[in-house]
Amino acid sequence: MSTTPVTPWYKQFWPWFLLGLLMTSVTVSTTMLVIAVRSADGMVQEDYYEHGRAINMILAKQQRAAELNLAGDLRIDDQTGDITLDLAGDDRPERLILKLLFPTRDDRDQAFTLEHVRDGRYVGQAEERLAYRWYLQLQPDQETPEWRLSGEATFPADEAIVLAPGGPG
């Protein structure tokens, strides 16, 4: 017969190791659940059906811009925030709307009004310095604009940004 004393379970390593694994998994799971409930997924469209139907309207606006031979060169001064657009083509309204759309978070989207000053040149002002990658949309300041130019840029940008009828965004 062996006379070695048996230590109680709570003084041994393995029960505490297994309980530690269990408590770690419960803690991580609870943390992930809280994060999932509190943070909304901004990439999901609630009205995905309506959004899908609007694609044909977007394509029609881009087609109309191509028919009008519209194209633009956009510059945004990183220091002063001055926005300068040179618009070429057959339609030059008095006021344009430039939308900057952030790819992943719609709460960062911005819109600027550009005023026509002369010969297809439009000017506006950005209130803060721009950084990161953006999708750009340019259209007339109307209730239902008939055309739209699109582009993509990473700010700060040293070169002119080309806005064209079939660009990204």
Rank of each mutant, 00 (worst) to 15 (best):
R64H: 12
I58E: 12
T24R: 02
I97L: 15
G52Q: 05
Y132N: 15
D106Q: 06
D141H: 11
D78R: 02
N69D: 09
D73K: 04
L138D: 00
T84V: 07
G169Y: 07
A60C: 03
K11N: 11
L136H: 05
M23D: 01
H51T: 13
L19V: 14
P8Y: 02
T3D: 12
R108G: 04
K11A: 15
T4N: 13
P103F: 08
R75G: 01
L59S: 10
E146A: 13
S2F: 09
Y10K: 06
T154N: 13
K99V: 08
F112R: 10
T30F: 00
H116P: 05
G20W: 01
F155G: 05
V26P: 02
V26R: 00
G151Q: 08
T84C: 03
Y122F: 15
R53C: 00
R95V: 08
E46A: 06
T31C: 01
I97Q: 13
D82F: 01
K11L: 15
V44M: 00
R38I: 09
D78P: 02
A54W: 08
V37H: 02
I55V: 14
L130G: 02
K61Y: 02
E115W: 04
S150Y: 06
E143H: 08
R92K: 14
E152H: 02
A111W: 06
R129S: 15
W9P: 12
V28K: 00
R129L: 10
F102Q: 12
L18R: 11
Q63E: 12
D82K: 06
R129A: 15
E94G: 11
L87C: 09
F13M: 10
H51Y: 09
E115Y: 02
P93C: 07
F102S: 11
A88W: 03
A160S: 15
P165R: 11
D158S: 14
L149T: 04
E50I: 06
T24K: 00
T7V: 14
S2P: 12
P5F: 09
L18C: 07
R92F: 03
Y135E: 09
V162H: 03
L130M: 04
A126P: 11
E159R: 09
W14Q: 07
D119P: 02
T7P: 12
I58D: 11
D47Y: 04
R133M: 14
L96P: 01
A60F: 02
E50R: 10
F13N: 10
A66L: 09
L98P: 06
D47T: 04
E143T: 15
E67C: 07
L163F: 04
H51F: 09
T24F: 02
K61H: 05
R105H: 14
T4F: 12
T144L: 04
W9F: 11
T3G: 06
E146Q: 13
Q62P: 05
K61R: 13
T113M: 10
L114A: 07
D141R: 10
G151F: 06
S25Y: 00
L114C: 08
T80R: 04
A60K: 06
A40I: 00
R108C: 00
V44S: 03
R129Y: 05
L98M: 12
M57V: 13
R118D: 15
H116S: 13
Q62K: 07
L96M: 13
Q110I: 08
L68M: 09
L136G: 05
Q110H: 07
A111R: 15
D91Y: 03
E46N: 05
A54D: 10
Q63G: 03
P168Q: 14
V26D: 00
